[in-house]
Design a protein around this nucleic acid. Structure first.
Lengths: 143, 143
DNA sequence: TTCTTACATAGTAATCTTTATAAATAGTGT
DNA sequence: ACACTATTTATAAAGATTACTATGTAAGAA
């Protein structure tokens, strides 16, 4: 999976640097949906001199190659997800945790939207919001 | 519709001020999906001394009461939509225009997601992205 | 109507995220 | 090893949103 990603980058003429490798590794191994700052902090120990701009630059490169997907939730900062298979996200309103879940891809809504609006459709985005199990139990304890 | 909104605000103990009224009117009458700055600029003539903070404050109040929905697209700034009936949005990648379209509400995906993840589901969000008709014709002309 | 009080506004500063810039550094093919 | 160019670093800058405080004002009570 990581090898495949590196190969895909090489094919796009992208050079491999230690920082780039580390950011990519982090995205592949961590199944969280980190912000740019999460990544920056996580790699600070290994790369004390790394700039935040480097994180953003690489995330942009990964996005252009199609390895990574950027998402804006209600929060202030964007979250980045290494693209594996098609899945949707459910997000906890309380703690912000993001969990993947599988559901048949909604191709139909794209064609309907296209017919109704005249748009040329490229993609869609779907997210479910609610409260995760652990936050549910905390809330019931408090009450 | 505006009356109903004002009443709803009063019931929540929210005072009516000229600025608040104007922001609300703008959201109800304009069917665009304005940013906070759009609203600020649109009302600058009537309220030369109005602060941007006032726009943000009121949008937050409207959100808390449930009159307004905040959305983050790829852009830098959030967009605000007066909640009327259930509909979805299709967004132009080129010019950023947002158009409503009707589609049966996807209740099923909420229950599926809840079963798979154990979340207590509150709502979902779905957007379709593509190119609007006018941007399509411009692109074909250029080429 | 006048008074009172808490909420709202204006104005500004501050914060946070992201992008831009320029000089130094380092990959990669030859 | 060399040369070319992408990349990194460091910092500044931009842009959106929030925090803060003094002033003003809506709305109910007297």
């Amino acid at each position: 999976m990581l090898d495949h990603a590196v190969q895909s980058l090489r094919e796009h003429g992208v050079r491999m640097t230690p920082q780039r490798q580390a950011i990519l590794e982090y995205l592949v191994t961590e199944h969280s949906h980190p912000t740019a700052d999460d990544i920056y902090k996580a790699l600070a120990a290994r790369f004390p001199n790394m700039s935040v701009a480097t994180v953003y630059n690489n995330l942009r490169v990964f996005k252009e190659v199609g390895l990574v997907q950027e998402m804006n939730y209600g929060d202030a900062s964007s979250r980045f997800d290494f693209v594996t298979s098609k899945h949707y996200h459910i997000i906890c309103d309380t703690c912000g945790k993001v969990v993947d879940f599988n559901y048949p891809v909604l191709d139909e809504i794209e064609s309907v939207a296209s017919q109704l609006t005249g748009f040329k459709v490229d993609r869609h985005r779907l997210e479910v919001y609610g409260t995760c199990p652990s936050c549910q139990s905390e809330q019931s304890q408090t009450h």
